[in-house]
């Protein structure tokens, strides 16, 4: 049981060591404060132990002293807040050039889809040195995708896309844990993240059973579900044309705006009447129950691919 024993976890992501610095700073602060208080308690207890010949001296208190020792922790804690907040914003705001993976959690497994369509369960192969973004959703209860070596976790919630990103910096195999209690086999909803050299990763991808490209799969769905009938510039157009729209701001009929992102796309498929784009009638039927989470992910991949497609290609 002493094999692999250590007091500190692997640090294998771009911000792992920065979280560790914060942690070690706080550990030092706690150690200094606790040791200081311990010394004070021991010293005062010995120095002022009860004696028959000495009475306690009554001290009323002192406002300057109170202000002094309120200000020290206040300043220190606000400083820690700023340090940690800066890092937090980086953790949850991904850079633009991420490889995008989809993660679906369900009791009690992780389903993962690579940008190129390969699928795996409970393992995630990624190349080292590339930022990776996970867009995550749950099919049932709340889960949490946690990789201790990367110092990252985020809840995986039913009905809501959440995301996290990281850049692995060290080749190796790391624990993947579900960190939000999700029922009977919560502790078995685990897996591994396998970080590989980019060339190895390409080789690994090539060795996987050829699966459909998610954009292509989404395009087929877009036609089969007849989305194309209304969302296409032409005489039958009854909904917004989706070319060049993803990532832009959408004006809504109620006067507000919304970002055209994964969550907006998903909501529009399942609850079309939730956000009506300005200038269109609320005529779209819901696809709730007709598409799986995976199919929604494929549709999103397709709609996303239209962002760089201005629609000219339609003519051919």
């Amino acid at each position: 049981m002493f094999e692999d024993f250590s007091l500190f976890p692997d640090a294998a992501s771009s911000y792992a060591s920065r979280v560790d610095s914060l942690y070690l700073f706080l550990c030092t602060m706690t150690a200094v404060a606790s040791f200081g208080i311990l010394c004070a308690v021991v010293f005062l207890s010995v120095r002022y132990r009860r004696r028959a010949d000495r009475a306690a001296e009554q001290l009323e208190g002192s406002l300057p002293l109170e202000i002094f020792w309120s200000a020290i922790p206040a300043v220190l804690f606000v400083g820690i807040f700023a340090w940690a907040a800066k890092l937090y914003l980086e953790m949850y705001r991904e850079p633009a050039d991420c490889m995008e993976f989809y993660v679906t959690g369900k009791q009690w497994m992780w389903k993962i889809q690579h940008p190129t369509g390969q699928r795996e369960i409970n393992t995630l192969h990624i190349p080292v040195g590339r930022p990776v973004k996970l867009t995550m959703i749950s099919e049932d209860v709340i889960h949490d995708f946690y990789v201790p070596a990367f110092r990252i976790k985020r809840d995986v919630v039913p009905g809501l896309y959440t995301s996290e990103w990281f850049e692995a910096t060290k080749v190796g195999t790391y624990h993947l844990f579900c960190a939000e209690y999700c029922g009977t086999k919560h502790s078995e909803m685990i897996g591994s993240v396998i970080v590989m050299e980019p060339a190895e990763y390409e080789a690994w991808l090539g060795g996987q059973p050829a699966s459909q490209d998610p954009v292509e799969a989404g395009r087929v769905l877009f036609e089969n579900l007849r989305c194309v009938t209304c969302h296409d510039a032409g005489k039958n157009q009854r909904g917004p044309d989706l070319h060049g729209r993803f990532g832009e701001t959408v004006g809504l009929a109620n006067g507000t705006t919304v970002l055209f992102d994964e969550a907006y796309t998903r909501t529009s498929i399942l609850e079309p009447k939730h956000d009506i784009a300005v200038g269109f009638e609320p005529v779209m039927p819901t696809y709730e129950g007709q598409v799986t989470e995976t199919q929604i992910q494929q549709l999103i991949a397709y709609v996303k691919s239209l962002a760089t497609d201005t629609g000219e290609g339609q003519q051919k």
Binding site: Y15, Y146, K153, A179
Partner: peptide
């Protein structure tokens, strides 16, 4: 502390 909580939460 936000970024640290991300790691040690739960």
């Amino acid at each position: 502390a936000l970024a640290l909580d991300v790691h040690v939460h739960d």
